[in-house]
C-alpha cells in the first residue's frame, strides 16, 4: 500500500516538475506577446487606419509594411526555387560529392551571422550598383532563407518511408517523375513548413537589411532597384531615436509585425493537411 503511495507521489512530483518547466519555457513568449500588445495597441489605436497606410511623417508605417511584403516576395522568388532543388538533390544523391558538401554547407549557413550576409551583399551588389535597393535586400534575405528551406525540404523528404519510393519506381516512372510528381507532393506538409519557417525568419530579419535595403518610409515609390523599407528595420531605426513619438511608433510597428506573424503563418501552418499514412 505505501509502495503504491510512494509511486503515486513520485508520479505527481514528476508531472508537476514537467509542468513548471514547460511554463518557464513558454512564459517569456507570452511575456513578449503581452508587452508588444500593451505598448503597441495605444499608438496604433491613436492613429487608427493611418498607422497602417500613412507615411512616417503622417504617423504611419505603410511603406515599411509594403516593403516587408516586397522583400518577402522577392527573396522567395530568388531563394525558394534554388533551395527546394538543393534540398531535393541532397535527398536524392546523399552520397554524391555535391550532396555531402551541400549538407555541410547548409549547416554552416544556418549558423552564419546574418550581419555578415548583409556586409557581403553590400559589397557585391549595393556598392557596385551605387545604391541601396530592394533587390540587394531581397538577395541578402534569400541567402538567409535558402538554408532553412533546403534543410527542411531535405528532412521532409527523408521522412518518406522507403516503401513509397519503391511503389513509385515500381510503376515504371522516371526518376524525375517519381521525385517531382509523387515524393515531393507526398511530403508537401514538411516542405511547406520549411518554406513558411524560412519566410517567417526572413520577415523578421534586420541585420542583413542594414547595409542593403536602405529604408524608405516617407513615400511609396517602390521599385526593385530603389531603396526599400521593412518593419524590423524601421523598428531598429526608431528605437535609436530619442523622441518619445518614435518609440511609440516602434511599439506599434512591433505589434503589426507580430500580427503579420500570427495572422499569416499560424493559419497557413494549421491548414496544411496532414497526410495520414
Amino acid at each position: 500500500m505505501s509502495g503504491y503511495r510512494i509511486r503515486k507521489g513520485k508520479e505527481i512530483a514528476f508531472f508537476l516538475a514537467i509542468a513548471i518547466l514547460t511554463l518557464i519555457t513558454i512564459l517569456p513568449l507570452f511575456h513578449i506577446i503581452a508587452t508588444v500588445f500593451i505598448n503597441g495597441l495605444p499608438s496604433v489605436a491613436e492613429k487608427g487606419f493611418t498607422f497602417l497606410t500613412g507615411t512616417l511623417s503622417e504617423g504611419g508605417i505603410g511603406p515599411a509594411i509594403i516593403g516587408t511584403f516586397v522583400l518577402m516576395f522577392l527573396s522567395s522568388l530568388i531563394g525558394l526555387p534554388i533551395a527546394l532543388l538543393v534540398g531535393i538533390y541532397a535527398y536524392e544523391y546523399p552520397d554524391s560529392l555535391i550532396g555531402k558538401w551541400t549538407k555541410t554547407l547548409l549547416q554552416i549557413m544556418l549558423e552564419f551571422p546574418t550581419i555578415l550576409v548583409g556586409v557581403f551583399v553590400m559589397n557585391i551588389i549595393a556598392i557596385p550598383m551605387g545604391s541601396y535597393s530592394a533587390f540587394a535586400g531581397a538577395f541578402a534575405l534569400a541567402i538567409i532563407l535558402m538554408p532553412y528551406v533546403a534543410v527542411y525540404t531535405h528532412e521532409a523528404m527523408r521522412q518518406i518511408p522507403f516503401t513509397y519510393r519503391e511503389a513509385s519506381f515500381g510503376l515504371g516512372l522516371t526518376r524525375i517523375k517519381v521525385i517531382f510528381r509523387l515524393l515531393v507532393p507526398l511530403s508537401k506538409r514538411g516542405v511547406l513548413t520549411g518554406v513558411l519557417i524560412g519566410m517567417a525568419k526572413v520577415a523578421g530579419e534586420t541585420a542583413p537589411l542594414l547595409f542593403t535595403a536602405g529604408g524608405l518610409y516617407q513615400s511609396y515609390s517602390i521599385g526593385i532597384f530603389k531603396p526599400v523599407g521593412a518593419i524590423p528595420l524601421l523598428i531598429y531605426t526608431l528605437v535609436q531615436s530619442p523622441s518619445k513619438v518614435d518609440h511609440a511608433t516602434a511599439w506599434g510597428a512591433s505589434l503589426v509585425l507580430l500580427l503579420i506573424f500570427l495572422l499569416v503563418f499560424i493559419p497557413v501552418r494549421m491548414s496544411l493537411k496532414e497526410v495520414k499514412l
Partner: peptide
C-alpha cells in the same frame, strides 16, 4: 517495370492521393 507490376509486403497506397488517383497516377 512497366511490364512487371509489383505488390508489396506492406500495403502502400500513396497516402496523399485519393483512391481514384492512386489507380490513375501511373
Amino acid at each position: 517495370r512497366k511490364q512487371v507490376g509489383m505488390v508489396f509486403q506492406y500495403p502502400n497506397p500513396f497516402p496523399h492521393l485519393s483512391i481514384y488517383d492512386n489507380v490513375a497516377i501511373g
